[in-house]
Amino acid sequence: MRLIGAGLAAVILAPAILAGGPAIAQQQPAAPFQLAQATPAAGAKAPEPSANQLKLARELLSANGEASSFDSLIPGIIDQAAGSFVQANPDLIRDLREVAKSLAPEYEARRAEITDILARAYASQFSETELNDLLTFYRSAVGRKFVERRQQVLDDGLRGIQAWSSRFSREMEGRVRDEMKKRGFTI
């Protein structure tokens, strides 16, 4: 599955949301020394997007590839729902798989709901002119190349960030150790 933009967050968070929400808060313990970060101001509700903005946003989702990044979400949720009964009923695994497979076509029509959610998010953030500009870009040769290679770029970038993060973490551990040593502590 291609995971891009809003799709990445949605796919990562979907199991936690479906499991009841509290799992999101439990994923990472609070850091004891959190650096202050700017928090968004409590903003007023944005105006409702126009019908044309929503139409353009749907076209954008198709052009930028994000609409297809959720192709496996519905089958995954159906499999997860059926699989939730396996532990209590291991003898029913084959039947549960068959039920999940038979339900998938019935719910595939709901894929449009996902697109509508994303389209509303884009339409709420971008004007008609901006959506048209984005569409122009994604329909251009360089825009199509961007969509085609985006996942590889992200994968390469994430590998690089992981390596950098590891080096940076070791550097910070050394610095903290040195600073604590200056204060008379050996850690």
Rank of each mutant, 00 (worst) to 15 (best):
M1Q: 03
M1L: 01
G5S: 06
G5M: 03
A6Y: 02
G7A: 06
A9L: 12
V11K: 14
L13H: 05
A14H: 00
P15I: 09
A16W: 11
I17S: 02
L18P: 03
L18V: 08
L18M: 07
P22R: 09
P22S: 13
P22H: 11
A25E: 00
Q26Y: 01
Q28N: 13
Q28L: 15
P29A: 13
P29T: 12
P29N: 02
P29K: 12
P32W: 08
F33I: 09
F33A: 11
Q34E: 15
L35M: 04
Q37L: 02
Q37T: 02
A38H: 00
A41S: 05
A41N: 03
A41V: 13
A42L: 07
G43Q: 15
K45W: 09
E48R: 06
N52G: 01
K55I: 05
A57W: 03
R58G: 07
R58H: 13
E59C: 03
A63K: 02
A63G: 01
A63F: 01
G65I: 04
G65C: 13
E66L: 06
A67L: 13
S68W: 00
S68M: 10
S68I: 01
F70N: 02
L73S: 08
L73W: 03
G76M: 06
I77S: 09
A81E: 12
A81W: 10
A81H: 08
A82Q: 02
F85Q: 14
R94P: 01
R97A: 14
R97I: 15
E98C: 00
E98F: 00
E98I: 05
A100V: 03
K101T: 10
A104Q: 06
A104H: 08
A104K: 15
E108A: 13
A109Q: 11
R110E: 12
R110H: 13
R111L: 05
R111N: 04
E113K: 08
I114D: 01
I114A: 01
T115H: 10
A119W: 04
A121K: 09
S124Y: 07
Q125N: 15
F126S: 03
D133P: 02
L135A: 10
L135H: 09
T136N: 13
R139N: 12
V142W: 06
V142M: 09
G143H: 04
G143M: 05
G143I: 10
K145P: 07
F146C: 09
F146K: 13
E148T: 14
R149Q: 14
Q151C: 08
Q151D: 14
L154R: 06
D155V: 14
D155N: 15
G157P: 04
G160F: 11
I161V: 14
I161D: 05
I161E: 08
W164N: 11
W164F: 15
F168M: 11
R170A: 11
R170Y: 10
E171R: 10
E171I: 00
M172I: 05
M172C: 09
G174N: 08
V176G: 09
V176S: 12
V176L: 13
R177M: 10
E179T: 15
K182P: 09
R183Q: 15
R183F: 13
R183W: 11
G184H: 14
F185T: 10
F185H: 13
